[in-house]
Design a protein around this nucleic acid. Structure first.
Lengths: 204, 204
DNA sequence: TAGATTGTTAATCGATTAACAATC
DNA sequence: TAGATTGTTAATCGATTAACAATC
């Protein structure tokens, strides 16, 4: 069955917690109560989530940390490599290019594109910046399924249309606007304004 | 009563939708059904949310768009200015400095800091970069309540400790790690890995 | 007036939490 | 064995949706 987003989020938290914890102090097993305590979640919830991805614990012992991490990585698809292109090599795009954790999650940025002729041909973070005019061709040739969008808002819909026409499967949208896409394309928005709203409300 | 995070998120969506829509084509009023249709939400939900922030509609007409936007801005605290400091002027920090929408939400970045002596004193996006050694002093002098953290992960906890010792109220964390803070400090994490997990799972 | 839309109460749905027998 | 922890069913809680009288 399709896992809900709240479940995916908790799985990510378990994974991050266990990775961090074992890095500091290697442990073999952990109980649902220990995880629950650390993440402020109900222990039953932890066991339910683990059950949902086929993990079995051991009575009086808990869960094998190694198994849990593997199972989460497997169900989330982190062991499955995703080739991606990044579009818009401004400051944000540049920051993403040097983000250290992508490989860990199977994300491989294969090529970067920009519309600015002054940038095309220059190098950035080990990539040669390509013209967005060659975008369609590239995506089709290399069968790219994911695009990371970091362009100015003015051009994001135009580029989105071009992307969807190639049959792209998902767009990770870092531009502060909403994109119109066909129903079969996943858009994940990283709208900074959501975080901002929570902060503004809290500080009021 | 304290509004729940899901409600805040919907309020943001209403606000963004109405801002965008009226920019294209000015309208006086809108019905809950129209909003619901556009955002794929139940119309009753929209009316409930509006009711929760004291908005009254008009039978057979709907809601005054202007009133709705004002009420949301007011309840979210966007008309209330928040002075902030930004720490870590790398690529991500630089991208945030040029983000166009902060003022709209009342966020004012007053000063920027970096630990790198090579950067201190240089200018970036209209700011003179200050040394993090002067951070405490600055926050106390200017009564800063919000810090935007864009440093490398290695130093994020050290800086967080320094920030909380000044009595800061909220930290907007763009570093890919978890921060330990006293209970009265709000941390909003922009962990990119959450978005990544949704995408990886979808593409699997 | 007639009809569309609101505001609100009641019903449903789903997610979280509690309880507890089964297990190691 | 005794006791701690799991896996799962039942109960609770909260959020979403439906229904409908009140309103313009």
């Amino acid at each position: 069955m399709q896992l809900k987003r709240v479940v995916l989020e908790r799985l990510m938290r378990y994974h991050r917690f266990l990775s961090q914890t074992t890095k500091i102090k290697p442990i073999q097993t952990i109980t649902s109560a220990q995880i629950a305590e650390a993440l402020d979640i109900d222990p039953t919830q932890v066991r339910k989530d683990f059950g949902a991805i086929g993990l079995m614990g051991i009575g009086r012992v808990g869960y094998q940390v190694e198994d849990v991490c593997c199972a989460i990585r497997q169900v989330m698809g982190f062991d499955h490599e995703n080739a991606a292109v990044l579009i818009g090599v401004g400051q944000l795009g540049g920051a993403l290019l040097t983000y250290p954790g992508f490989e860990k999650y199977g994300l491989m940025i294969e090529a970067v594109f920009d519309s600015d002729p002054a940038k095309v041909g220059r190098r950035k973070a080990g990539y040669t910046i390509r013209s967005t005019r060659t975008l369609k061709q590239y995506i089709r040739n290399y069968n790219i399924r994911l695009a990371i969008l970091c362009t100015p808002v003015e051009v994001s819909q135009t580029l989105t249309d071009r992307l969807t026409s190639t049959g792209i499967k998902a767009i990770w949208n870092f531009t502060p606007t909403s994109l119109n896409v066909p129903a079969d394309v996943l858009v994940r928005n990283e709208h900074i304004s959501l975080g901002l709203s929570e902060i503004a409300y809290h500080l009021k």
